[in-house]
Structures are given as structure tokens and as C-alpha cells.
Amino acid sequence: MAVRPIRLFGDPVLRSVTDPVRIGAPGNAGLVEDLVDSVALEGRAGVAANQIGVGLRAFTVNVDGRIDYVLNPEIVELGGEPALVDEGCLSVPGFYFPRMRHPYAKVRGLDLAGEEIVLEGAGLMAQALQHETDHLDGKLYIEGLEPETKREAMRAVRQAEWFGRSVE
């Protein structure tokens, strides 16, 4: 299908909790194709449906050369002591800030046929699963930053030349 433009910080769709995907609904396959095409670009670890302007509960991840998608994902397990990791976001381009994430995560959801999918992993995969699930819940990663880091991040974002625009 197509690589879709990424919605940027300030776009209200990023703050909205997404609706469940109705399995078998027309357009689901096209949404998954667009998510896969959009996450396949170099340097992208994940894309949530609301980042491409679709208010449905779906995301893709691209970790270690493998692209996966999941519909209606829910985090079912987090493991290990949370630790600070540098994190960025396509919706907040050009910035990386340290934020607490669990080193292991497991997500359960569905594929296009309604069959169960489980995505899990450590390191970048765990970070991506937590990050993309947060997107679907209407939360951006900067909301989870330590207070002083969050103030710094918000100052930088408001001064960014892309603020309020979409990018390819």
C-alpha cells in the first residue's frame, strides 16, 4: 500500500486512546500493509496506527530485521527492574531522552484472521512493545520522563521547527 506520514507532537490523534480493531472489518489488511510499509524505513523500530492518523489499536515493530504486527495488543507481562534507556519517537523527531522501561515485555493480541499473536522480547524489542502500546493508550514517551528531563524535553519540542507538522 503506502508509507504514511507520521503525525507529530501536538496532533490530537496522538493523545487519543485508540479503539479496538474489529476483526474482519474492511480496511484492516490495508491498515496493516500501511503500518508495515511505514515501519520498514531505516531507523524505525515501531509505528502505531494513531501515528499514521488511524485511531485503531494496532502497531508494527521492526527489530533485528524482523517486522511484526499486532491488532488489539495488550501488555500481559513486564519483567526485570525498570532501567533508564535512551528513547526517541518518530512523533517527536530528533530527540532522545532517558526514560524508565522494563527490560522484558510480552504483548498478546490478534492477527488479521483473529488468531492469537504473542510478541515478546528483551532490550529494544521490550522497549518498542512498551512504547507502541503507550501510543495506543494516547500516551507519548515524554510523559514518562523524570520531571526535570520532561521540562527540558518540552522546551526543546516547542522550539523545534517541525512542531505541529506531519513528516514523511
Results as ranks from 00 to 15, higher is better:
E120Y: 12
I23M: 07
A128C: 12
N62C: 08
E115V: 04
I52N: 05
R165I: 11
G79C: 12
S166W: 10
A48Y: 09
L119C: 05
C89K: 05
E74R: 15
H102Q: 15
P12Y: 06
L35D: 01
Y104E: 15
E132W: 10
G27D: 07
G123V: 05
G121Q: 06
V107Q: 04
V47Y: 02
G55N: 15
G94I: 01
N72I: 13
L129C: 02
L110V: 10
I52H: 04
D134P: 07
L71W: 12
L14R: 01
H135P: 00
N50V: 10
V13C: 06
P103F: 09
H102G: 12
F97S: 03
G24L: 08
T18V: 10
A2K: 13
V107R: 01
V118R: 01
Q130V: 09
P20F: 02
E132Q: 12
H135S: 03
E74G: 12
Y96V: 13
A105S: 14
G27R: 09
R7L: 10
R165A: 14
A48F: 08
V107Y: 02
V107H: 00
G80C: 06
G27L: 06
A25F: 08
V21H: 01
V3R: 10
G24Q: 11
D64W: 11
D64T: 08
P5F: 02
A2N: 10
K106V: 15
A40P: 03
A156K: 14
R22A: 12
F9T: 05
L71T: 08
Y69Q: 01
P82F: 04
L112R: 11
G144Q: 06
R7S: 07
S91E: 03
N72V: 11
K106E: 15
T60P: 07
G80F: 08
I6W: 07
T133F: 06
R158N: 12
L136G: 07
G94L: 03
D11E: 07
F9I: 09
A45C: 12
V47N: 01
D37R: 13
P93W: 08
I117R: 09
A45K: 05
G79I: 13
D111W: 11
W162V: 04
E146F: 10
E148S: 13
G43T: 09
F163V: 13
P5R: 02
I142W: 04
R151V: 14
L14G: 00
M125P: 01
V70M: 05
P73S: 04
G65W: 03
R101S: 14
G94D: 06
V13Y: 04
D19L: 13
V54Y: 11
L78T: 14
I117F: 00
V3P: 00
G55E: 14
R57A: 08
G43C: 04
F9C: 09
P82G: 01
D64Q: 13
Q127G: 02
F59I: 03
E81K: 15
G53M: 06
E132N: 08
V76C: 06
G30T: 04
L90F: 04
D37A: 13
V3A: 05
Y96R: 15
P98M: 13
R7V: 03
E148L: 14
P93M: 08
M154F: 11
F59V: 03
G88E: 06
R4V: 01
A153D: 11
A113S: 14
F163P: 00
V47P: 00
R158Q: 12
V92E: 03
A49D: 03
G30P: 00
E42T: 11
L56Q: 15
R4N: 03
P103K: 07
F97D: 07
S38E: 07
V54G: 07
